[in-house]
Design a protein around this nucleic acid. Structure first.
Length: 200
DNA sequence: ATGACGATTTACT
DNA sequence: GTAAATCGTCATA
């Protein structure tokens, strides 16, 4: 799903009618309880990560560093047979988006560079789309506040991969896995365009 | 009740 | 390149 979401449209609509739409260009996969980099590592089910155990299509938004919010798309099944447990606890972090519609105005490709940093990085994305814990747990399949649409452009996207960003330095094979996906031809991607697998 | 810690960004050297 | 900003969350006590 992390790979498949590259190229899809992320849409945000405000009560006052304003709209934003952007093309997803960078994601990261967080694979659940076995993944040392994942918030559900070890089967964690604290209030903060509760949304990660819900069904695919749920938004998981959390707060970190005392100032930033991050948006994830939950992608596992929800609890069915075991109400207190169940689910898979996996999600995809949306790290960067190419602005297409800003303040309800379609931005031509030639003018898009003016918005280069608007949604480049998970923190900036949430800041500019005004997404916080108030939207945590939202059903992203209901197109009213925040949702995902169809691929934005009919073009062959070359999806590149790298290790995930910002996971600290606790040694673990999980942190070296190439679970970050991005449009290799996009200039809207955050951080390094390729990360070394492991510093020699 | 307390303390350590971020799936980051920004400002400075 | 390095460091500060800043606070909710959760594991201890």
């Amino acid at each position: 799903m992390a790979k498949g979401l590259i190229g899809t449209m992320l849409v945000r609509a405000w009560p006052d009618g304003r709209r934003f739409a952007g093309r997803v260009v960078e994601t990261e996969a967080y694979l659940g309880p076995r993944d040392a980099g994942c918030h559900t590592f070890g089967g964690r089910r604290t209030p903060r990560v509760a949304s990660m155990w819900k069904q695919a299509g749920t938004g998981y938004i959390y707060f970190t560093y005392g100032m930033h919010h991050m948006l994830n798309v939950v992608c596992g099944p929800a609890a069915v047979t075991n109400p207190g447990g169940g689910g898979i606890g996996m999600a995809v972090l949306i790290r960067a988006v190419e602005p297409i519609v800003v303040d309800s105005v379609l931005i031509d490709a030639e003018n898009r560079s003016k918005f280069r940093d608007l949604c480049r990085g998970p923190g900036r994305l949430c800041k500019h789309l005004e997404m916080d814990r108030g939207l945590d747990g939202l059903d992203l399949t209901v197109g009213q506040v925040l949702w995902l649409g169809l691929p934005g452009e009919v073009s062959r996207v070359k999806v590149a991969t790298s290790a995930r960003v910002g996971l600290g330095n606790t040694p673990s094979p999980w942190l070296e896995r190439k679970l970050r996906y991005f449009d290799g031809a996009s200039s809207w991607v955050s951080g390094p365009r390729a990360m070394p697998v492991k510093p020699a």
